[in-house]
Design a binder for these strands. Structure first.
Lengths: 218, 218
DNA sequence: ACCTGAACACCGTTCAAGT
DNA sequence: ACCTGAACACCGTTCAAGT
């Protein structure tokens, strides 16, 4: 039989998480799918938390960004954010995973963060400001990726669309005098807007705030 | 004996969540603290999810923002964000709660959202843009509140500070050639920056992005 | 080094029954 | 209306033991 390896476990976890949601990823379920005892996993991972950390690292893996000393920082930061969003969009469960783990324990995420920090420093921000801004940017990128895709199930699935329909109707049947705008915009709220809007507008939104602050101190 | 009521349950949950973390809030633990059978809670809440929704609603309760037709939208949106951050800072577990629940199921959060949507429309954004921006703003406010306070335990507690110390050392002992900036800024990264910086800088960061976009389309 | 068996201390939830 | 008892189907994790 194929040997049980960290890689294999993480990949199986990704499969389960992507089409049944992260809450379906349990030690026991994972073991069952891999044809092994639950305790076998404890040889490869200290505990479940570390398994999810491994999953997170696997997700961000492959997205390598390095600081380029000659190109302008704005351009590079923008690419970093856009790239992260793109990577997270590839897996439905990616956002839930990143939300659950402590980012500081994820090596590949730390690498992205390191680059972001360097670019903030290059922009002329202080240490404290750079910390705040980089946190804000990465968190913002994750939030952006969360907004569009349905996190529990793929938008393509029947259950996903049915759930969206129910939610839309729920919003629409809210008291109109209390929540006038929610009722009016129920459809775009639950369905999210077009992907193009997200890619251009969302990243712009994040970067504009930072660029304005940088200019102000220049 | 004091009667078991929704209010009492939620308040107990808040107590537990605030000083032991949200993961300590379980149906069984809650029942034990309240001197009642676990199943008693199911009379007042459909399930655990709805209990947490109730908790979330309780947290945002009291933060009422209403649209003022005469004052400029920028000012109002800024107050909305700053106010939400202030409210969330009052309870250590607030951020975890808001991250766990579906915001659309929390009445008082919907009210804040409704106001935000109205202000976005007033700023001249389209339906789709207003949805994106309001989501981004509220999510951003939550993220800002998360950054500063330690979410698992109060910063004042011994365990909290010890955990921060360990984390700082972990970051500092990372390979310096791979993560130069992380190593260099380990201290401010784990400790977070001063609250004043957060309040002024963080909210500015969020608002600047939006104001820039609004001006651009004017 | 890598995995199993059995056990422990938990979960959320249902359903019938009590008052 | 409001709560209990007993049971079900799950969790993560430890620890000694097997190969």
């Amino acid at each position: 039989m194929g040997k049980l390896t960290r890689e294999a476990v993480v990949e199986r976890a990704l499969l389960i998480g992507d089409d049944e949601g992260l809450q379906a990823v349990t030690i026991r379920r994972l073991a069952q799918d891999l044809g092994v005892t639950p305790m076998a996993l404890y040889w490869h991972f200290k505990n479940k938390e570390q398994l999810i950390v491994g999953l997170a690292d696997h997700l961000v893996h492959g997205f390598v960004v390095t600081e380029d000393p000659v190109r302008p920082w704005q351009e590079q930061l923008r690419e970093l954010v856009a790239g992260l969003v793109r990577v997270l969009r590839r897996h439905p469960c990616a956002v839930s995973v990143l939300e659950e783990v402590d980012h500081m324990e994820v090596p590949h995420f730390l690498h992205v963060w390191n680059t972001a920090l360097g670019l903030c420093r290059k922009a002329g921000f202080t240490y404290e400001e750079s910390c705040l801004i980089s946190k804000y940017l990465l968190q913002g990128a994750i939030a952006l990726s969360a907004g569009q895709v349905n996190r529990k199930a793929g938008v393509t699935s029947k259950e996903g669309r049915e759930a969206a329909r129910v939610k839309r109707i729920t919003l629409q049947s809210l008291p109109q005098d209390v929540y006038p705008h929610i009722v009016e915009m129920a459809a775009p709220l639950v369905e999210g807007c077009s992907t193009e809007l997200y890619d251009t507008f969302g990243v712009d939104l994040l970067m504009n705030g930072i660029e304005t602050l940088a200019e102000r101190r220049a």
